[in-house]
């Protein structure tokens, strides 16, 4: 089912992200998405999805965690994955950079296409996939090294030949941390506050120059002020990166994301532009969740 993703003129198919919304109700959001795509594509070319997930199934042992997920992630947008605990949103996120296969006893089938290339095909190297699809974790997890080395390490192991100092500065600026740490780059990262550590982790991810940045509840361990800083950073970053963020916080999803996907019990229930999904959900279950009636 991913074959048609290669055809340049797949305008009708660009929004396959609502697999369950088969009847007429889905038409409206599709139109909305198309309008915005046209606005983005100033050159007149069709915007191809950055990531295209096709009929993805995932198991932890016998537990069927993801059931036939199909969705497109648009480039230079923030896509939010929401849903109650255990719905599979983090699992789905980790399927996008092959982090799940580091857990033993897991199986998957389906496709995850990055720029039209299946990242799970035999020739694909998970190490290279992860360089292109970076990840920021729920809990800030800087390396027990200096601030500078935290940012520089990823570039070093990936054979970066340019000016590492400039790269560190650029990455820290992108993560809105530079001004706070420029005078103490060679002090331990553990001395930073939680919010600063998380922005350091973002900078570290950016330093390997990925295409996509995955974020797994990046602000859930932070206080409101640190959270708003991280959110500002994310909004800045979508100019240069495609961002997929898992969040428990629906206000956060509505503040920072362009599109939102609602998952429930391992299935994609609904995916739409964020304003649409929150104000005019197509599915009862989505409506119940976004209005806080369950979750």
């Amino acid at each position: 089912m991913t074959d048609n993703s290669q055809t340049p003129d797949s305008r009708v198919d660009t929004d396959q992200s609502v697999p369950d919304a088969t009847n007429g109700t889905a038409d409206q959001p599709r139109r909305a998405a198309k309008v915005s795509n046209d606005a983005d594509a100033t050159t007149g070319e069709e915007v191809r999805p950055k990531l295209r997930i096709g009929d993805l199934n995932f198991w932890y042992g016998d537990t069927h965690a993801l059931k036939g997920i199909t969705m497109d992630i648009a480039p230079n947008e923030v896509t939010a994955l929401i849903g109650p605990s255990g719905c599979g949103k983090s699992t789905l996120l980790r399927c996008m950079n092959r982090m799940n296969e580091l857990i033993q006893g897991t199986t998957m089938d389906g496709q995850v296409m990055l720029d039209g290339q299946d990242i799970y095909e035999k020739e694909a190297d998970p190490v290279m996939v992860r360089r292109r699809v970076g990840m920021v974790f729920q809990k800030p997890n800087p390396f027990p090294k200096t601030i500078y080395k935290n940012v520089a390490w990823g570039a070093k192991i990936n054979g970066y030949t340019g000016d590492v100092e400039a790269l560190v500065e650029r990455s820290l600026r992108q993560a809105a941390l530079w001004d706070e740490v420029k005078d103490r780059l060679h002090t331990p990262a553990y001395d930073l506050s939680g919010g600063q550590q998380q922005r350091l982790c973002i900078a570290r991810t950016l330093a390997v120059e990925p295409d996509v940045v995955l974020m797994d509840e990046p602000a859930s361990a932070l206080d409101p002020i640190a959270t708003s800083k991280v959110e500002e950073t994310i909004t800045e970053l979508k100019k240069d990166y495609t961002i997929v963020i898992v969040t428990h916080n629906m206000q956060q999803a509505s503040r920072i994301s362009d599109r939102t996907a609602f998952l429930y019990m391992g299935r994609l229930i609904e995916m739409n532009r964020t304003d649409q999904l929150f104000t005019r959900p197509q599915k009862d279950r989505t409506e119940a969740y976004v209005t806080g009636r369950f979750g």
Binding site: V127, N141, I157
Partner: peptide, 27 residues
């Protein structure tokens, strides 16, 4: 060793041996 350190290193595109030499063994 906190598992976050391994995950972070893998997520940057490190190979297993790079993760071990740079992070696991020192920690």
């Amino acid at each position: 060793i906190p598992s976050g350190i391994r995950g972070a290193a893998f997520a940057l595109g490190a190979t297993r041996s790079q993760v071990i030499w740079s992070h696991v063994l020192p920690a």
